[in-house]
Every structure is written in structure tokens, then in C-alpha cells.
Amino acid sequence: MRCRITRARLVAAWTWNANDDLCGICRLPFDGTCNACKTPGDDCPLALGECRHAFHLHCILKWLSSETSRNHCPLCRQEWQFQQR
């Protein structure tokens, strides 16, 4: 046994786990932010619906609060339910 590993500093990067790269509402990447935010990451999280569609949390909340939404997912028109953990 010539070499022995005594210490390891591993690095891992995290990204949002969504089926798509872009938010279906603002068309901006999930890695970035919705158009209301400045800093990506925890400050601008993702929301996943029961229908498996993902949006920026800010985007979908804004959508749901509008009259026309009737609480539907903007992509598949099913009723919007936040996915339970």
C-alpha cells in the first residue's frame, strides 16, 4: 500500500431539480431568477405542482393571484396544487 487517502474535501453544486430548464411563465432559466428578483438561489426558489410543472415560486404566486388564472396551472390547465414533500 503505497498511497493512502487521509483526507478528502469534496465539492458538490446544487441546482433546482425541475423537468425543464426554463420557467414556463417568465421564460427565464431556473438557475437564474424570476424577473422580479436580483439574486438567484434560495432567495428565488422553485415551486413544483402536483402536475409536475415547475415555475419560479414568485411567478406562480403572481399568476395564481390574478383573476384569470382560476387557480389553474398555466401549462396544463389542471387545478394547481403545490406538490407535497
Binding site: 487517502i5 478528502a8 474535501r9 458538490a12
Partner: peptide, 25 residues
């Protein structure tokens, strides 16, 4: 552990940024 702690996130290992210490004879 990470997946249990944060759902909705994906973890990618970055070997080019990782380092180690070796004892070599």
C-alpha cells in the same frame, strides 16, 4: 442526507473542484 434535507434540488459532484490529501511512501 442532502436530498432528505432539501427536496427539489439536484446535487452534482464537482471532481475538478474537489481535493484530497494523500500519504505516500
Amino acid at each position: 442526507f442532502y436530498h432528505a434535507r432539501f427536496s427539489g434540488r439536484r446535487l452534482i459532484w464537482e471532481p475538478s473542484l474537489s481535493s484530497a490529501e494523500l500519504r505516500v511512501q
